[in-house]
Nucleic acid binder design. Structure first.
Lengths: 232, 232
DNA sequence: TAACAACCGGAATGCCCTATCCATTTCTCG
DNA sequence: CGAGAAATGGATAGGGCATTCCGGTTGTTA
């Protein structure tokens, strides 16, 4: 329905007119602010208002809300992937591992939209998903390194990282501005439970497919189903 | 729980007509099912449909959605309070404590509506809040007992229980039917982190007031909806 | 069984959402 | 400068939500 307007990445099809190009950037910047403040359930109208453009302009640049979300969070996903790389550079495997968790959870707390994105999956937003997959691979290396160093419990599973983000999203969503640092305590507790030696056995991890389905579950159509949100 | 009581508070006003009385019970039963399955964001229309009554009938019995929620979950809150009592009866303080957490988190997983209720507060639903407060007091005793036995870390704070429920709600909400047991793993990890001796210091607990505000934040009007906006 | 209040269901209201339409404005290039 | 294509914004469609209105139905009581 809108063949002309292409998105970020270098695969530029048609050069945009200068004003369109400018607006596109302003929209993304405004959306970053709005999604960060209100989460993914912020309305397209509020993004348009924040940008100072009409609704139609917004939808011409991003035919669906999901497209906008993908554009806004693609660089956040870069930072996410970078965090793993940084963690892998840390000479101390355990410090790298815990630092990574803290970093990403802090990103969730600082950006409500990102907190939502991390626990969802958007099959149509390929760029986003590609970065997520790359990050996942690096995360596995990070985990194995920490285990090899004897600091991370052996039964830690990569999928536990997803569970952490879900749990953290729950805390961040529920507390919001009212208790903006509450998540730190929960994350600190979790990290202590990861440290070897394990204090006891754990129930099994969810199947990989099941977790994927779970992340899919949250995303369709309106982007967010329910979930509270903050108000001004 | 409370036949004969109209929506407006306490004393059995006038007895309902037999059909109305019957419908009231059926509505609560149906709402229990629907909220349990879909969470608090289930629509009033879907509750009416499940019950087999018209929308107007639903609203005559429960003038607002919050009234319905309060009616449906008042007995769930009884079970919640009971769980603390049972835990206090356990001769092993630590076993009682961990069993309590597992029980309540299982209640969250089994009833999506309850998962939401536990992390919200409804100032207008007095009965609900009264039970919550009673439970809180008993929880403090449970915690102190576990600490006295030397099994629970000294820096554990009653508010940590609320944080657990928020985190668990995050996992339960995100995974849903797709990975229905994922929460068990997270809760097991958290419990291991509670065990004395502590493996390290923790960031401070949120202020009591802040946590209350956080719980308030999610509830008003519409129960889960929220509005962004603030800039004109 | 008749009559009336209590009760019922479904249409209607008003709000917010994503997404589209179209008349108007603005850039660009000859 | 002066088209015409590109881009714009406000109105609007179409759907979901909680809540209300109102004409018809049913339990109750005499």
């Amino acid at each position: 329905m809108n063949p002309g307007a292409q998105h970020s990445d270098d695969t530029a099809a048609q050069p945009l007119r200068s004003d369109a190009e400018r607006n596109r950037g302003r929209i993304i910047a405004a959306a970053r602010t709005v999604f960060g403040r209100d989460g993914l359930n912020a309305s397209m109208a509020s993004v348009a208002r924040e940008t100072g453009v009409g609704i139609a302009t917004l939808f011409r640049h991003f035919p669906t809300k999901e497209d906008l979300v993908a554009a806004v969070f693609s660089d956040r996903m870069d930072a996410y992937a970078d965090a793993v790389a940084v963690a892998l550079d840390d000479p101390d495997p355990w410090h790298g591992f815990t630092g990574y968790i803290e970093t990403v959870c802090a990103m969730q707390a600082a950006d409500y939209g990102f907190a939502d994105v991390l626990t969802m999956t958007f099959p149509t937003a390929k760029a986003l998903e590609k970065r997520r997959d790359e990050a996942y691979e690096a995360m596995v290396r990070l985990i194995n390194r920490a285990k090899a160093a004897g600091r991370l419990r052996e039964d830690f599973d990569p999928s536990d990282l997803v569970l952490i983000h879900m749990a953290n999203a729950g805390v961040v969503n529920a507390t919001g501005d009212a208790a903006p640092d509450a998540w730190r305590r929960v994350v600190a507790l979790l990290i202590q439970s990861f440290e070897a030696p394990a204090r006891g056995p754990l129930p099994p991890s969810p199947e990989h497919d099941a977790l994927y389905k779970a992340m899919l579950r949250a995303s369709p159509a309106g982007i967010t189903a329910a979930k509270p949100d903050k108000s001004g």
